[in-house]
Design a protein around this nucleic acid. Structure first.
Lengths: 223, 223
DNA sequence: CCAAAAGTGTTGGCTCTACACCCATGA
DNA sequence: TCATGGGTGTAGAGCCAACACTTTTGG
C-alpha cells in the first residue's frame, strides 16, 4: 500500500513527561526503566508514541497512567525535541510535557511496559536514555521560572499546607533563605491564599494551614 | 506495540512559522496562500512536513525560505499543536515556531508551493486555514511577554535605531504611552544598548542611533 | 523547663512615577 | 519662523529589605 511504502520516510511522534515533585528541599523526578531495547539499562522519563486521533495531552496522560504514577498530575507542554539523532534507532520527535505532583509517591505495580518506576533526587540522577537529561533540566528551569510569576506552586504542594512549607519550596528553588516576615507579607498581600481549617502539628507551636484560592494557573508577580 | 507495526496509523509532523514584525504601531504577520487543496482559498502561516533526518529548526528555516520571505529571521519554538481535528484531512501534529524579522518586507517571487505571500496587520487578519489563527495569537502573546524580561526587541528592530523607535515598539505592544524620560533612563541603566554611529534625520532635531550590545537572547528585567 | 518552629511591626533607603521646558533640524 | 520630534532633571510617594523578640506546643 502506498501510504505504508513512504511512511517510513516520516518521523514518528512521541510524548515524554518530566514528572517533578518537591520534597526534602529539592526537586524529585519520577523515572522508569523501559523494557524496550533502545533504552535498555538506562532510566527514562515515562513516554511513548502518539496514536492517530489522540490529542497530545491525552497521550501524555495515557503514558503517565501506564507508568505506575499514583495521582493525576498537573500537565503542561514543555518543549518538542526533534533532533534526528536523539534516538539512534529512528527519527522520533518527542513532545515533552511537564508533569507536577504534590508528593513523590508511586503506585504499587510495575507494568508490562516498564521493569520499574522510581523517584530520584534531581541532583543525583542515574544515566538517562535518549536526551532525557536535557528534558529534565528544561523542566526544572520552567518550574523555577514560573514559580516567580504564577501560582504554579499549588501543584507542588498538598491541598492545604502551612506557611513554612510554602516558604521551604521557594527558598529551596531559589537557593537562598527568605525572610519569613517579608515572604508572608508579600504572599498575603496578593490574596491568592485563604486559611484552611486545621493546623500542622509537631514539636512546636501549631501552624495555621492555608490553601490556594484558585488552583488553575494564573499569573501573579510573586518574586 | 500495535501502533508501531501499523505505521500508517501514525500522525504526521509539520512545522509552521508565525512570522511577526512590528510596524505602524502594530504587529504585522506574514501569511501565504497555499496551492494545496486542504487550505484552498484561505491564508496560512508558512509551513510544511518535517523530513526524516532533519531537525525541527532546519525544517522551519527551509519552509521559511520556500515562502518567499526575504531575510533570515530570529527563530524560536513556540508550541506544538496536536489536536487530531485541526486538519480535517489527516492527523497532522504541527510544531509551531515564532519567527521575528526586523521589517515587513517580502522577497520578489511566489513559489511553486504558494500562490502568493503577503503581510497583514494582526488586527485585520484574513480567514486563516487550520488552527493558524490560534498560532498567531499565541505567537503575539509570547512576544509581548518576552519583551518584558528579555532583549528580544532587538529582533524586531533594525540593527541601529533611535530611542523613539524602541519606545514606539514597547508603547505599541503594551497599549499605553510610556514616559519618555523614565523609559530612556530605565533602558540606559540596564546597559544593554550602546550608541551607534550616525543619526536618524527628519523634519526635526536629529536622533542619536543605538544598537543592542548583545543580539543573542538574554533575560533582563525591562518592565 | 527546654527545644523548635510559628507568628508578628517598624524604619531607612531606594526605586519609581509624575511632570515641563529647551534644542536642533527641515521646510 | 514654525512645526516636529529629540533630549534632559527633580521631588514626593510608595515599596522593599533588613532586622529580633514573644508565643505555643511536645517531650
Amino acid at each position: 500500500m502506498g501510504a505504508q511504502s513512504n511512511s517510513h520516510l516520516r518521523p514518528k511522534v512521541a510524548v515524554d513527561a518530566v514528572v517533578l515533585s518537591f520534597a526534602q528541599r529539592e526537586f524529585q523526578t519520577y523515572l522508569v526503566r523501559p523494557r524496550a531495547a533502545a533504552a535498555r539499562g538506562k532510566w527514562a522519563c515515562p513516554g511513548g508514541l502518539v496514536a492517530v486521533g489522540e490529542t497530545l495531552d491525552d497521550a501524555a496522560r495515557r503514558e503517565l497512567r501506564a507508568s505506575g504514577l499514583a495521582n493525576e498530575p498537573y500537565l503542561e507542554q514543555l518543549f518538542t525535541f526533534g533532533n534526528p539523532s536523539r534516538d539512534p534507532a529512528a527519527h522520533v520527535i518527542s513532545v515533552a510535557y511537564l508533569a507536577l505532583v504534590a508528593a513523590p509517591v508511586r503506585s504499587s505495580s510495575p507494568t508490562k511496559k516498564y521493569f520499574e518506576g522510581s523517584w530520584f533526587r534531581v541532583s543525583a540522577l542515574p544515566a538517562l536514555a535518549y536526551d532525557h537529561a536535557l528534558m529534565v533540566r528544561r523542566g526544572i528551569a520552567r518550574v523555577q521560572a514560573k514559580l516567580g510569576y504564577t501560582n504554579i506552586a499549588c501543584n507542588l504542594l498538598p491541598e492545604s499546607f502551612c506557611f513554612s512549607e510554602l516558604e521551604a519550596l521557594y527558598s529551596g528553588v531559589l537557593g537562598r533563605v527568605l525572610d519569613r516576615r517579608n515572604f508572608r507579607r508579600r504572599i498575603m498581600a496578593m490574596g491568592i491564599l485563604r486559611p484552611a481549617p486545621g493546623v500542622r502539628r509537631g514539636n512546636h507551636r501549631p501552624a495555621q494551614l492555608y490553601r490556594f484560592l484558585k488552583r488553575d494557573l494564573q499569573t501573579v508577580q510573586i518574586l
